[in-house]
């Protein structure tokens, strides 16, 4: 069973080995590979305005605190990507409330092999579902490149488009609402993607002043 580490609040660069590794992998994936127009700090860390004290991170690591994969959760009561940057992806208002959190920056280490990628992806997804059930989160929202739609749906959880996809930059991008309830782990089991994980709450790192 794999451990998924839960961090509340972002650590400033240089203060936490694991966080530095995550921000470095995020830079490789989102900036170097996918060519996203997002800020890079110190030439090596992808850190944006939402990496603050309000963000929660679910992180898979290897034995040496190396980063294997992670996702970021943002409360929709505060600033978040869909509500603040891409509200046009929703037909109505972007969903917001205490029980709704946004998933973003889903990132797998580029060093992982194909089989490990699936394993870590499934573990992070399962952990996000377990985390939601433990903390009264009833829906996640996310923004997705439509090339990934089939794979997001194939995880087995219940998804609902929030609007028709639109072209952003060079990719067709859409917003989804993912509903989480007591039956969701079984939906994942049915789809063959559920993995038991141990959620490990980490000592809160040094928080950003932001």
């Amino acid at each position: 069973m794999i451990d998924i580490h839960i961090f509340e609040g972002c650590c400033t660069p240089g203060s936490n080995v694991m966080f530095d590794a995550m921000h470095r992998d995020r830079k490789t994936i989102f900036v170097d590979l996918l060519k996203w127009d997002v800020p890079v700090i110190g030439g090596q860390f992808e850190i944006d305005q939402f990496d603050g004290p309000q963000a929660i991170y679910l992180v898979a690591t290897d034995d040496d605190e190396g980063h294997l994969g992670s996702i970021r959760l943002l409360p929709t009561c505060g600033p978040h990507i869909l509500g603040d940057i891409f509200p046009q992806l929703c037909d109505g208002a972007a969903p917001a409330g205490t029980g709704i959190w946004e998933i973003s920056r889903g990132c797998l280490s580029p060093r992982l092999r194909a089989s490990e990628r699936l394993h870590i992806r499934n573990a992070l997804t399962s952990a996000a579902v377990d985390f939601a059930l433990l903390h009264g989160i009833t829906s996640y929202t996310c923004i997705a490149d439509m090339g990934w739609l089939s794979q997001i749906l194939a995880l087995g959880w219940g998804c609902m488009p929030l609007g028709l996809p639109q072209t952003i930059g060079r990719t067709l991008t859409g917003a989804l609402r993912i509903d989480i309830h007591g039956g969701t782990p079984n939906l994942l089991r049915d789809a063959g993607t559920y993995q038991r994980t141990r959620l490990v709450r980490e000592q809160q790192g040094q928080r950003n002043a932001a």
């Binding site: 089939s150 749906l153 639109q166 049915d190 789809a191």
Partner: peptide, 23 residues
């Protein structure tokens, strides 16, 4: 005008429904 983006939604969700039924 919106046929292509809408086709993504239709194709994606229809295929997932088919996978579920087959499974």
């Amino acid at each position: 005008d919106d046929s292509l983006p809408a086709a993504y939604i239709v194709g994606g969700f229809a295929f997932e429904a088919a996978r579920r039924i087959v499974r």
